[in-house]
Design a protein around this nucleic acid. Structure first.
Length: 420
DNA sequence: TCTGGGGTCCTAGGACCC
DNA sequence: TCTGGGGTCCTAGGACCC
């Protein structure tokens, strides 16, 4: 059996951990730059605050309804996620951490020793006791079905106590007929529209389609889903923690930027951040992509958006290298006369450091790695990046708009809760 | 004033090889 | 009238996820 564990309203639940006064109160968490709503407590959902609601448009509404608003606090969420995953992995060795708030579990041979539903109820209770994060669990014979079982558990908490198991054909059909096509894992907006246009409205309708039609119109990805939903184990548990294939650092700016130097400063910072992420996973990258764009929401402004790929002469993860090539890319795509809203650096063709391909010339100097090591250690110790590239103007402190940031309760000594 | 950020996989088609 | 067959690699674009 597969189990899918999903933390309920994860970010909002994290914000409530150290704020017992917020229990049963509407809580929302905003995206970077406090742009839009990305998590809502049940009470906030009841107020009909939609996912993705634009924060400034709802300001008044939040005030009138005493909605507690938070900026996103990723150190807190990341740490709580790790704690939850650790508890889950005590219940089965077979676990795939699928996202910050979700994990697939596999239970092989448990039926001989455990009543699975009971086992999961205990697991759920343990997670809630140790972390205060409420979770829902879906169980079924395939991954895609466990995902659907999870939705049932979440939608009917009273009847299911947060754990739903699809273990009969009758339950499978019932769940598939209940779930709308657009809510199925793997069916996004485009496919949902296409399927509805041929009168496929539920997951069940989808399972009745001919496999060849699915393959032709939705590629093998759709076909795998089709098989999985029909109860044929197709998608497998992916336990391996893989090195990333791409790493990105991208941001919207709090204000529009028009000057080349201002945009260059941002791109420089993004490039250095990418280099840092690469070193953290012991990899090099082979190319750097730089992109920039104007504000697509302001249709009255002239629009411009471009990206460029710069292939490095040798694989690298050195601040200086990535910075140089990123700026070189920017200089080729930057055009004067536009109001820029967003830019980013993406690195790719990532290879592990242990298998570095040397070139005839241009090999980076040995001592650069030790220099980067020292920079990382110093920057970690002082919490912020006190050593920067000169292109990252230290006088300019670009801060993200984070007006309602909670403390790093669990990851920073100075933020630990005081108990008098 | 104000609309997020970071990922993956698959396919078709072009360029190239012998 | 008329010019093979079998490959690989790379990239852009389209779909999806949380």
């Amino acid at each position: 059996m597969f189990g899918l564990v999903d933390c309920n309203n994860f970010y909002a639940s994290c914000e409530r951990l150290f704020r017992p006064d917020l229990r049963e109160k509407p809580v929302v968490v905003l995206s970077n730059n406090d742009g839009c709503v990305i998590a809502r407590s049940n009470e906030a959902k009841k107020l009909n605050i939609p996912m993705g609601a634009v924060a400034f448009k709802f300001k008044q509404m939040f005030k009138e309804n005493n909605v507690h608003v938070f900026s996103s606090n990723y150190p807190l969420y990341g740490d709580m996620s790790e704690r939850v995953m650790n508890i889950l992995s005590q219940y089965t060795p077979d676990i795939e951490i699928y996202s910050i708030d979700e994990a697939f579990l596999q239970f092989n041979g448990y039926e001989k020793h455990f009543e699975l539903r009971q086992h999961c109820l205990e697991m759920k209770q343990k997670v809630e006791q140790w972390t205060s994060i409420p979770i829902s669990i879906g169980l079924a014979e395939t991954k895609a079905l466990s995902k659907i079982a999870n939705r049932v558990a979440k939608k009917f908490p009273k009847q299911t106590k947060g754990v739903h198991i699809i273990d009969t054909e009758e339950k499978r059909v019932k769940a598939l007929k209940w779930i709308e096509i657009g809510d199925v894992w793997g069916i996004g907006g485009r496919y949902a529209r296409k399927l509805r246009s041929i009168n496929i409205n539920t997951a069940y309708d989808f399972t009745q389609l001919h496999p060849q039609w699915v393959k032709k119109n939705m590629t093998v990805v759709g076909l795998r889903l089709h098989r999985d939903l029909n109860g044929h184990k197709t998608l497998r548990l992916d336990e391996e923690v893989k090195e990333k294939k791409n790493i990105a650092t991208t941001r919207s700016f709090a204000k529009d930027l028009e000057n080349y130097d201002d945009v260059r400063e941002r791109v420089s910072t993004f490039a250095v951040e990418c280099a840092k992420k690469l070193r953290k996973q012991n990899s090099y990258c082979g190319y750097v992509i730089v992109f920039l764009s104007t504000n697509r929401h302001k249709s009255q402004d002239k629009q411009y958006s471009r990206s460029i790929v710069i292939t490095l002469p040798y694989a690298s993860n050195i601040n200086h290298d990535l910075n140089t090539y990123a700026i070189c890319g920017l200089s080729r795509i930057f055009k004067k006369g536009y109001k820029y809203k967003r830019a980013g650096v993406i690195v790719g063709n990532i290879t592990p450091m242990r298998s570095k391909q040397l070139t005839f010339f241009d090999n980076q100097k040995e001592n650069m790695q030790s220099l980067m090591g020292a920079v990382d250690r110093i920057n970690t110790r002082y919490h912020k990046d006190i050593i920067k590239m000169a292109t990252q103007n230290p006088a300019r402190t670009w801060v993200m708009r984070q007006e309602r940031l909670s403390p790093n309760y669990t990851t920073r000594l100075t933020d630990i809760l005081k108990v008098r």
